[in-house]
């Protein structure tokens, strides 16, 4: 029998459970991802997608199970800046008085001194990241004055500046323009080639087929997990969405 080398997995979540004051949000969930893999996280609202993200980042504590990030604890992953979280647009206060530059600089906070004084290398990382998402013309623009797509790119740049090896993206394609969508999908290919691991939640089934090597269907627990081509079937999708047929959800088979 082959022994599992946990170092091989970027993310290894084993039978994790999360409950909020006794209310179960997620139970017995498993996920294993290797470097360079892109995995789609699909489920209804309230199925536990955000909870799954929160567990991986350590924002909520798991009540059961084990999470290893690069073979280590979530705590040391936080210290090593291993995981970057890209929130959905609704998840942040767009009226907060802060510029693109300052948001992206927040990606560097974890590796700065206590006063968060940017070093030369931090400034360079922020510059490069903003360039990669094509926002160099908006360095000092307040985020309130950006379009939905530009705001999404700002938070992507923050993740890039952080130099994380794992990216968690909550609905990266919702509410963005075509230009941003194209830019994000190009970045995904670059990330994959750089060996980064990506877990993204999405409502859009076309994006799953297009980008995701793997798919994780959840409804409080894992309904199905595996290669997109094998697992992303109408039957599994129906189960995930509580018995509603995929025809009804996405129109007749495209």
């Amino acid at each position: 029998m082959e022994t599992i080398n946990y170092q091989n997995f970027r993310i290894d979540a084993e039978n994790i459970c999360v409950d909020y004051n006794g209310k179960v949000a997620l139970y017995d969930a498993n996920l294993r991802l290797k470097p360079g893999q892109i995995c789609g996280l699909v489920g209804m609202n309230g199925a536990g997608k955000t909870t799954f993200f929160n567990a991986l980042t350590g924002f909520v504590n798991i009540s059961k199970g084990k999470i290893r990030i690069n073979g280590e604890s979530v705590r040391s992953a936080q210290k090593d800046q291993t995981i970057a979280y890209v929130p959905q647009n609704e998840g942040i206060d767009s009226q907060f008085p802060i510029s693109v530059w300052d948001v992206v600089m927040m990606g560097r906070y974890g590796s700065m001194n206590i006063f968060r004084c940017p070093r030369e290398s931090d400034v360079q990382a922020v510059k490069d990241a903003i360039e990669r998402v094509d926002l160099t013309d908006h360095l000092s623009t307040p985020i309130g004055n950006l379009s939905g797509g530009q705001r999404k790119r700002t938070f992507l740049a923050r993740a890039i500046a952080q130099r994380a090896s794992i990216l968690l993206l909550d609905e990266p394609f919702s509410g963005v323009d075509i230009r941003t969508e194209k830019l994000i999908s190009e970045l995904f290919i670059q990330f994959k080639n750089e060996g980064k691991t990506i877990l993204l939640s999405t409502h859009d089934m076309i994006h799953v087929r297009e980008f995701c090597d793997l798919v994780l269907l959840i409804n409080k627990t894992v309904v199905a997990y595996g290669e997109t081509s094998e697992v992303f079937t109408p039957e599994n999708i129906t189960t995930t969405f509580g018995g509603i047929s995929p025809d009804f959800l996405f129109g007749p088979e495209s």
Binding site: T57, K79, A84, Y109, G110, I114, R116
Partner: peptide, 22 residues
């Protein structure tokens, strides 16, 4: 003054703060 920037981050995006070990 010492925690000026951390508090700003905490008000703005506590989830990111937690993710990067703050």
């Amino acid at each position: 003054s010492i925690f000026r920037k951390d508090l700003m981050l905490y008000c703005f995006d506590p989830r990111h703060a937690k993710t990067v070990g703050i």
